[in-house]
Write a protein that binds this DNA or RNA. Structure first.
Lengths: 132, 132, 132, 132
DNA sequence: GTGGTCTAGACCACA
DNA sequence: GTGGTCTAGACCACT
């Protein structure tokens, strides 16, 4: 399981940051089906956060159907059909893009220019990622 | 001044929703330089919100330099150099696109596909807007 | 809002007891659409429980779509179409009856006898209720 | 001995699910007096559960007086007077129906309708059972 | 060992 | 005033 990176100044609740990052790791396939997640306490120590906060993030992911609890054993990535996974990915992306689409249209920025800005940002990110 | 649309379920603070929408109207040119904004009380009644909330949104926009307060008269859209306006638009858009770019890269969605999704969303929005 | 009755010995988590009872009050129509719920702190004091526990119950009911949050104002019973309400009631009842149906069949108790037992229990409850 | 079916999502402890299902098999007569139960390890492997969990279920059933332990030999279904058996069955059923009776009354569902729902569920179960 | 629940009390954002 | 979040630490149930 990849490291979780927290930003205390973003205004986004910590449990939400954890939840979002784990969800992405699952949808991106970096957390495979059946994989066991870090125990609540371990992750809590690792990212220096109260165990309850981690627990809350896990609970919400379980409610989303992405995690499965095995009592007394631990939490595991729930099986997810590849198609379902793809659909979830697209839905997630579309949601993230929604506000940006509205912005561009409202501000009268040309479709091509907006797409170019988006492309540049994606390249920027993938470059940064490859360097790591 | 266009109508403000609030979403109680989005988790975004109401004052922020007002602020964002007015800012966009200004940058999009639909609220021209020198135009007078609705008085706090009027807008508050119109969108059924506590006047304090509207006032807070206005104050933040004033702090951004987008509004000008003329005491005893009202609030007006501050003059804004076209270049400045364009730069602000792009910056705003880039910010809105940032998270979506990171998402697409992390989830391994191809650049082209992500851009296509974005394009579709923009067309969807402009179509909806034209219909009104 | 009716009193919430807690049973510390039932093994059912407190937040779940609160959640269940409020849900029933809503579905039974004793908490009408638009009614404001007791503030978290008030209810917490009234039933001698930690505010977080109440808050958790409220949050889960909101996730169910039965409650609506108005930021900084309070929590309210969400509008619910009468048909939807009826369907929810039946679903809730069917769920509660599921295990009992399986039991009766598995233990080979005749349909009529099982139904008679059920009828007697209902009469017992309504009698008790009327006395109050 | 019939198969034990476990549901990890029900919230009911696993040892409790095992215990309940074996109890029902005994009361239903599908596990006859004197019959030997599967050894702890065998059942544990069969239903993919920690042997300790099976052992706990067996121990609780022994405490209930439904099982008899013969040291070095195994566990057997204890003799049970038919009347006792019937009483246990009814008591078990009444317990399972208690919450459902309270629900129906509280939600104002008519006695007849509630009983009809219950009857339908029982028929549904017996049909499913006959198909197997 | 695992996760779940609860407490007491603090601080914050929102209206 | 409202609810939301987080902490630190306790206790419990399950495996």
């Amino acid at each position: 399981m990849d490291l979780i990176h927290l930003d205390n100044h973003s205004g986004v609740p910590i449990f939400r940051q954890i939840q979002d990052q784990i969800r992405q790791q699952i949808l991106a396939g970096r957390l495979a089906t059946g994989a066991q997640l870090s125990p609540v306490r371990d992750l809590a120590i690792q990212i220096r956060v109260n165990p309850m906060t981690v627990s809350k993030a896990y609970a919400l992911l379980e409610a989303e159907g992405l995690l499965e609890r095995r009592r007394g054993v631990g939490l595991f990535v729930a099986p997810l059909a590849p198609r379902q996974r793809d659909r979830d990915c697209r839905a997630l992306l579309a949601e993230a893009l929604g506000a940006a689409a509205a912005s561009a249209v409202q501000m009268g920025i040309a479709e091509d220019e907006a797409m170019a800005i988006y492309r540049d940002l994606m390249r920027e990110y993938s470059r940064r990622r490859d360097q790591r």
